[in-house]
Design a protein around this nucleic acid. Structure first.
Lengths: 192, 192, 192, 192
DNA sequence: TATGAATGAGAATTCATTCAT
DNA sequence: AATGAATGAATTCTCATTCAT
């Protein structure tokens, strides 16, 4: 065991600690030593993996933004109906949020922040582009709202539910998730 | 020195400058001198009106939370139909956001922050209580979702639209607002 | 006495403390807090007057380089003989070194450092240009050496004497200074 | 582990890298990792050969001071005339500077630094003692200046030429070196 | 022997807050 | 009341040194 790949264990610990603290306290109120302490590393160690606090937050954002993108796009039912696609996105979004609740909050909160660099922002835009495509293909079935507006409503409603669950007002169980999925679908489809 | 002033042009300037900076950069990344500069006052002046940066942010939050509460509850159609009540809330929310877009973003972003004190949080809860009441009274007409869930969906969808407008993806004009109001209503009402 | 011009007293104290420490220990080995302590100011105060440690060292260099320039050029005997010009320079140099021995050492040591910015270097070049002019005008009387070489010899010899005095090996009194002035003059003039 | 190595390619590489960096940037502005990188060794390796950064700089100083001493004293014309001795020193100094320009600058700059320990300083004093002896023996032929002053003038003038060459203002070729040697000799000898 | 990842004390710099004017 | 210069504790970041491999 001459050189256990305990290599980037520290990097992972730093990223996890930082994710939690940034999400809870915000970027500006989180100190580097507090990240180091939570990650159980020396504070100098953080600078062996990341050039600065800003780079750290951007790397984490990009990493999770990428994961979210793949969570939503993997096994995407390209040939399926619009409803099937909608269900796919909703289900994946719910699963992602359930598995990585902190990362989900982090992504939501950081995107509207001046701390992200161009590359981080572009990761987000890629996801929006994908969703736009989806909506555009089902255009006929939806209400006469722009793709961006439809996405904003669905995404916003989902985030609203997550926030209510975070503050303890609701419990995001499968029933609630399914019922909400139906409600929002009913909201966005065209009815004459 | 025995009685700090309670209202003045300077106090207002400080509150407005702080509102904008906190909203754009977050609490932790906003410096007191930068607030003073934007408000065109000496940084010491801020401490004549507020005990600390924390008190400042809480006063601003409480003030705007209160205004939002009144915006939604004033002239509330107590005797009207559920739909009339829904339209009232939606319309007032849209008007508030249109008149005070920065304050709206501020309230949304700050609420999920550890910088708020108990009193600030309770201001928010009062609003939620009011909305709960409304939903509860129309219970029959809504989908089988908890009041909190229904509120989360409507509020979240609205916030989603605001965010999309902030990032320039949509324009929050009356048509869009009306169409969205209908969409979300369709989403939350009970249909057999 | 409502507002004594004790204004830049602190700035002066900082500059003097920094001059001494930089000269004694070198730029890299001098810490900002040590400068603050010697100047009897808070360390944050230094940053109200100078953007960074680098700017501090450059401002001091430029200031003293300028003073040295004026010390050598003021009352310069434009119409005098070459020997009179030489005596003027020598005398002013000696006086400057006597009055500001630390600043003289500082200028000598810093010029060969990568910490100086372009403007600082150009201040030095201005002095060299002036000396070049002087030598060039007396060209006939000097040994067949380039102006720069002649300047290097005279300036270097003077610096050598200063260093020997700093380390206590000699005492730079008037007799020594005069005798040295003669010696070096004899060295650089043309003899057939 | 009981006996640190005393000579090796790595040690030489470290010493050479350190010599260059200390000379260019000064002691305090040179980091140990940067020395390691330039020497192409691990930074831990440096500590196998030297106890600390301070010891490193002192060892290098002593080593080169010793070499300079031998360069000037080897084949010294004990029985020669004063002028022959002067020419010997001048020629050896020029050769040393030509062969080891960085080491020469290093010795000049470090001697006036608080980073040298007693032993390093005494190495320098030994050289000065030797030069003093030389001057003392030729006392009659020199101007009425103390040995230390005469040494300071000659050494300083030479250093001045080196500095001018380092900054690109002159080219230290043989002609210039010879002419300068003559000039300075003329300067220091007694003339009635 | 050699390494370089890891460390934490210490450096440069920032900023919330104070206070003399 | 108002100011903003001054401060030093706190923050970001660096680096001499150690030590597990």
């Amino acid at each position: 065991m001459l050189k256990p790949p305990h290599d980037s264990e520290k990097k992972l610990a730093i990223e996890e600690a930082a994710l939690e603290l940034f999400t809870k306290q915000g970027f500006g109120s989180t100190t580097v030593p507090s990240i180091a302490e939570k990650a159980r590393v020396g504070s100098g160690t953080i600078y062996r993996y990341f050039e600065s606090k800003e780079e750290l937050v951007n790397r984490i954002f990009q990493q999770w933004q990428e994961r979210l993108y793949h969570a939503l796009t993997d096994a995407y039912p390209e040939k399926g109906s619009t409803r099937e696609k909608y269900d796919h996105i909703w289900g994946r979004l719910a699963a992602f949020q359930k598995n990585y609740p902190v990362a989900f909050d982090f992504l939501e909160m950081m995107y509207y922040t001046p701390h992200l660099d161009r590359e981080s922002k572009s990761g987000r835009l890629r996801l929006l582009k994908f969703l736009n495509q989806l909506v555009h293909e089902g255009r006929e079935e939806f209400r006469p709202l722009s793709s961006d507006a439809l996405i904003a409503i669905v995404w916003g409603a989902f985030v609203g539910l997550v926030r209510a669950s975070t503050t303890g007002r609701i419990s995001l169980d499968d029933d609630l998730l399914n019922e909400s999925r139906e409600a929002i679908w009913k909201g966005i489809i065209h009815t004459r």
